[in-house]
Design a protein around this nucleic acid. Sequence first.
DNA 1: GTGTTAAATGGGAATAATTATCACTTGATA
DNA 2: TATCAAGTGATAATTATTCCCATTTAACAC
Lengths: 147, 147
Amino acid sequence: MADHNQRADTIVRKLRENGHKITPQRLAIIKILAVSEGHPSVEDIYEQIRADFPTMSLATVYRNIVLLKSLGEVLELGFPDGSNRYDGNKPAPHPHVICIRCKKIVDPVLDSLDEMKKEVALETDFKILNHRLDFFGICSSCMAGKG
Amino acid sequence: MADHNQRADTIVRKLRENGHKITPQRLAIIKILAVSEGHPSVEDIYEQIRADFPTMSLATVYRNIVLLKSLGEVLELGFPDGSNRYDGNKPAPHPHVICIRCKKIVDPVLDSLDEMKKEVALETDFKILNHRLDFFGICSSCMAGKG
DNA sequence: GTGTTAAATGGGAATAATTATCACTTGATA
DNA sequence: TATCAAGTGATAATTATTCCCATTTAACAC
């Protein structure tokens, strides 16, 4: 909880530094993203805020996500089916393990990834700026048959 | 070239085995995908075929790609910006290195990936079925300033 | 506090990519 | 060559996202 407030504060500070206003709508979006254990979708964020902020617009959610992405404070997770979900809690690229049944997302620890990045840069002569690594499978509880 | 014909034949055989007809339109799509050095988009395929097959419909391209994906004969490369491109030449998941300037795609050789997959399975207790690994950066020729 | 102003918002229209629909055509088989 | 399920073409429908613009408001100065 304290962590989440801290995370939200970091984002707010970054926005102020870059000359952006802190509106109630914006703050509501940030708070949800800063918690973001569940990797919410735009629709999730929209519905959640609309509950006690009925005039909230979808466009505002989109606009703010674009802004936060551009500041590097939110990571967009694009799925093969075209849907997007967001992580405002850990905005640097990191690997995901995704259950294709229950859609649960786990963040594995993979130390060898940095090594791999260097290997790729060397082999292809690219300057690597970013990456995306996702594993798709079935989690243990779904495999146990409760799905 | 022989390789590409072989690849197209493999796809055709797979289609027949599963009770699908081989239409001229379908064959044209397969031939383009089987070459697919350039990882074509749906639009690319459509335009290319329409040149000497003016009644070709976009819907047909989409339909056939869905079919070939479901048979595991085409790999869909979904990009962060939402665009899709296709590889019918090497349909098993494999890493890509993508230049964000010129959109060139290179396939690096990464032996350590299998190892990583096992590591993830062990750590998360998932049954890993699929994965996606893309590196984004700038290729050497773009870096040399000709972009 | 009040005024000023650029930035942000709301709501709907516009856009883009993909999928669905359906009448018509055709490849495969007998 | 006849049959018919599968495939196609043209277009409508759908979905996700972005654009537009009149109105509102946060931030700052006084």
